[in-house]
Write a protein that binds this DNA or RNA. Structure first.
Length: 318
DNA sequence: CGGGTTTGACCGGCGC
DNA sequence: GCGCCGGTCAAACCCG
């Protein structure tokens, strides 16, 4: 299609349009995160005290009954056993989490399609293409459900819109939008030829040091260079690991059992956006290790999984 | 030379 | 039908 000169001139004129916009999103997220971190801190501190008192009792027993050599051997074997138990639990948790998430997503999509079909049928029963229309609407809603937004702290002096999240992206466009003087960059995932994921990156109107990253779609390949377990954690946790900043996806089921948080020794402060990814990974591993040492936690985990499975089986029967 | 970035042009949805 | 605007295309360019 060939466009006339006037339209082309308009296109050129409108580049660089400046406007105003508001973003209350950041403030709301920070309040919500603050409450969440306080709760996690309380739980972690309580558990640390329980662990400490248990350890003291164990040491007294050992001192009374065993020689030093035996003590070392016992402790070493105990460490080995706990290490293996920790590994097994981490693996099991990942598998359960992955399976549970897939099941929930499938159920959610099915329900959404059913509901939109029912609603469309009841509102426009005479329309010949009502089924087609409702299917299209359902597809659109499912597609919308796969959109997530992540806020990342960036150096204000750095004008590039590059966000390192482990994937390879090819920039295919940049645009000035009406509601934000900063340009918006458009990226496609270039790791896999037919990966449908796109992302948009734009600086926040209110705080230019914050990059608003909008992801659309889901990767049809694995996270590059990540260990097996981290592939299996849900995307909310992955987002936390990648960005250590605010993230939101209202359609993402919360199946991480509230575990993806920093260890007790770091809990006196809320992690900020400058924390490195390595710090977060080490912290989470330490925290998982301390949790798996706690038999109460293991029992609670088993009970939680059992409850989830019961709930799931009830919902799928409905 | 291959892969990524830049940027002007084009497309299509939406509101009036 | 027209204008506005976000999203995408693709040629030119850059860089290791």
């Amino acid at each position: 299609m060939v466009r006339n000169g006037e339209k082309q001139r308009r296109d050129r004129r409108r580049r660089g349009v400046v406007g105003n916009g508001g973003d209350a999103y950041q403030q709301g997220r920070e309040m919500q995160e603050g409450r969440r971190w306080r709760k996690v801190r309380e739980v972690a501190e309580g558990q640390k005290m329980r662990e400490s008192s248990r350890t003291q009792l164990n040491i007294m027993d050992v001192e009374q009954n065993m020689s030093l050599e035996e003590k070392v051997q016992t402790l070493e074997s105990e460490i080995q056993r706990l290490y293996k138990e920790n590994e097994n639990l981490s693996f099991s948790l990942g598998v359960i989490n992955n399976n549970y998430r897939s099941l929930l997503q499938a159920c959610l999509q099915e329900k959404q399609i059913q509901e939109t079909s029912r609603a469309a049928a009841s509102t426009s029963p005479k329309s010949g293409s009502s089924e087609e229309y409702s299917n299209k609407r359902a597809q659109n809603e499912v597609a919308k459900a796969k959109v997530s937004r992540v806020l990342k702290r960036a150096d204000p002096g750095d004008l590039s819109l590059v966000v390192k999240d482990g994937f390879h992206w090819r920039k295919y466009g940049q645009k000035i939008t009406k509601d934000n003087p900063s340009p918006r960059a458009y990226f496609k995932c270039s790791m896999f030829p037919d990966c449908p994921v796109k992302k948009k990156v734009q600086r926040s109107v209110e705080d230019k040091s914050i990059l608003v990253v909008t992801y659309e779609g889901e990767h049809n390949h694995a996270v590059p260079g990540a260990p097996n377990f981290s592939i299996m954690v849900d995307s909310a946790t992955t987002n936390y690991l990648n960005s250590s900043s605010s993230t939101v996806n209202p359609f993402q089921p919360d199946t991480n059992l509230g575990l993806a948080f920093p260890p007790a020794h770091e809990s006196s402060r809320r992690p900020n956006c400058h924390d490195s990814m390595e710090d977060n990974n080490n912290g989470i591993e330490e925290y998982v290790a301390s949790l798996t040492r706690d038999r109460n936690f293991t029992a609670a985990l088993a009970a939680s999984v059992a409850r989830s499975l019961v709930t799931l089986s009830h919902s799928t029967q409905m």
